[in-house]
């Protein structure tokens, strides 16, 4: 079949995924409430399962349309970049609220905490120990992902795979070290508003590191499958933007919550 396009836009086919994905998200929301209130976990799992399946099939469609059918013209790519940029902006605002909660609680500590920060009886983590190592790991991963990016642009596939593999490795290393820190931490999420703000902010950051690592792994697989060219690799660019965003959030977390907050 031959398609003649007289415009640079991509008119997508009708798709069941937006509606089904919304259904999955609804199940996650309701399921989470059921889990938190009644310990009933099955509905939440069902929602997660549906959303993960929809992610696979929806993005499979997108990859087919872009990589194999060539529908992603410059204009379409521009639109996708706007979308990613606005998504990251919304994520910035999401984290802004946790920083707000942190500063609200820490700048004028309540009398219940002894009017001190960290609160009386809370021993914070040493910010110049593992958290500093984590900062080095995450900043380094920013360098390796840029290495991979320029390798893709200059058509050096092997170098790109190496750089991206290192980035994924550093991402996994960060998650592992954070896991150790979480286990070793002398305070828990229920230890005053210090624990609440600490684990809320760093926990959501860790969750975003997991998402970013998954995104990079997908890019690595696509790189190995020769799905990126030096001119056509929006998926990789989106992943690297997201990774840099996660990196910057960590920098602020480190400076404010770990260092200043201890």
């Amino acid at each position: 079949m031959r398609t003649v396009l007289c415009h640079p836009y991509h008119l997508v086919e009708p798709s069941p995924w937006p509606c089904l994905g919304a259904g999955g998200a609804f199940f996650i929301t309701v399921g989470s409430v059921m889990y938190f209130h009644y310990g009933l976990v099955q509905i939440m799992y069902l929602g997660v399962l549906v959303v993960v399946i929809i992610m696979f099939v929806w993005w499979q469609d997108v990859i087919r349309e872009s990589t194999f059918q060539g529908f992603h013209s410059l204009v379409v790519k521009q639109g996708i970049k706007y979308g990613m940029l606005l998504f990251i902006l919304s994520e910035v605002l999401f984290f802004f609220s946790f920083f707000w909660a942190f500063f609200h609680s820490s700048l004028a500590p309540a009398v219940e905490l002894g009017v001190v920060w960290p609160p009386q009886g809370v021993n914070p983590l040493n910010s110049f120990s593992v958290p500093l190592l984590n900062t080095a790991v995450l900043l380094s991963s920013g360098a390796t992902v840029t290495w991979a990016h320029h390798a893709i642009i200059s058509g050096k596939r092997e170098e790109a795979i190496l750089g991206l593999s290192l980035t994924v490795f550093l991402g996994v290393l960060f998650t592992g070290l954070q896991g150790v820190e979480y286990y070793e931490a002398p305070f828990t999420i229920s230890d005053s508003v210090y624990g609440s703000t600490f684990f809320m902010a760093t926990g959501f950051h860790g969750f975003h590191v997991l998402i970013g690592t998954t995104f990079l792994i997908i890019c690595l697989v696509r790189l190995k499958l020769n799905q990126f060219t030096s001119r056509q690799h929006v998926g990789f660019e989106a992943a690297s933007w997201y990774w840099h965003f996660v990196d910057v959030v960590w920098l602020f977390l480190y400076l404010c919550v770990y260092w200043w907050g201890s």
């Binding site: 190592l133 080095a136 900043l139 380094s140 360098a143 390796t144 840029t146 170098e159 750089g163």
Partner: peptide, 13 residues
């Protein structure tokens, strides 16, 4: 960036 990764990032880590 490859050099930064190898000669700055790795020693820093």
């Amino acid at each position: 960036w490859k050099n930064v990764s190898i000669f700055v990032a790795v020693p820093a880590i």
